[in-house]
Amino acid sequence: MSGSFAFARSARLLKPDAFANALKGRRIASGGLLMLHVGAVAEGQARLGLVIGKRHAPHAVTRNAIKRVVRESFRHHRGELPAADYAVRLYRPVGDVSLTALKRSARAEADAHFARAQRQGRASGTGTPS
């Protein structure tokens, strides 16, 4: 892996239009808690947006832990991901589980989703997952 692992402002989805485009795009993967959507990119790099709402994770501590873990996974996979806008959405309620167990499962799921996006991008040969 080469490059920086920083999560720069340029690597984030910041505007509602960018989130909308990513969420309207293809759903690449879904798991027990998280769903990964990918949309076309206007710029030449992978960017991440997170949709972690109170509806499925009512406690701020839980929401922040999930966001932190997904961002960390994205930072490690960003160099190999095709240039696109990625939106990770929490789509199922977080059960009554310890924070440590939640972090482990969210990290494993996020790693698997980003690895799948990587494989699909390589298989398509276009650089963007299809």
Rank of each mutant, 00 (worst) to 15 (best):
Gly31Cys: 07
Ala11Lys: 12
Ala18Gln: 05
Glu43Leu: 00
Asp17Cys: 03
Ala6Trp: 14
Ala11Leu: 06
Ala117Met: 10
Ser30Cys: 05
Arg9Asn: 14
Ala11Thr: 10
Lys54Gly: 12
Asn21Lys: 14
Gly39Ala: 03
Ala18Arg: 02
Leu14Lys: 15
Leu102Thr: 00
Lys54Met: 06
His76Pro: 10
Phe5Ala: 15
Ala18Leu: 06
Ser10Cys: 07
Gly79Ala: 15
Ala101Val: 09
Ala6Lys: 14
Ser98Ile: 15
Thr126Gln: 08
Pro82Asp: 13
Arg9Thr: 15
Phe5Thr: 15
Val61Gln: 08
Asp85His: 00
Pro58Arg: 15
Ala115Ile: 00
Ser10Pro: 13
Leu36His: 00
Thr126Trp: 06
Gly31Pro: 01
Ala108Pro: 00
Pro82Gly: 11
Arg68Gly: 07
Ala110Asn: 02
Asp17Trp: 10
Val41Ser: 09
Glu43His: 13
Glu109Lys: 07
Ser73Ala: 14
Lys15Cys: 10
Asp17Tyr: 13
Arg68Glu: 11
Val88Tyr: 08
Pro58Lys: 14
Ala57Leu: 03
His59Cys: 08
Ala8Asn: 11
Gly31Ala: 13
Pro16Val: 12
Tyr91Thr: 08
Leu99Thr: 10
Gly121Ser: 10
Ala42Trp: 05
Leu36Pro: 00
Asn21Ala: 15
Asp17Pro: 05
Phe114Asn: 00
Lys67Asp: 08
Ala123Ser: 11
Gly95Leu: 12
Lys15Thr: 09
Leu50Glu: 07
Pro58Trp: 10
Leu102Arg: 07
Leu81Phe: 02
Thr126His: 12
His113Glu: 10
His56Met: 04
Val51Glu: 02
His113Leu: 03
Phe5Pro: 04
Ala112Met: 00
Ala20Asp: 08
His59Leu: 15
Gly95Ala: 04
Ala83Tyr: 10
Ala106Ile: 01
Ala20Ile: 03
Ala108Val: 14
Pro16Lys: 07
Ala40Asn: 13
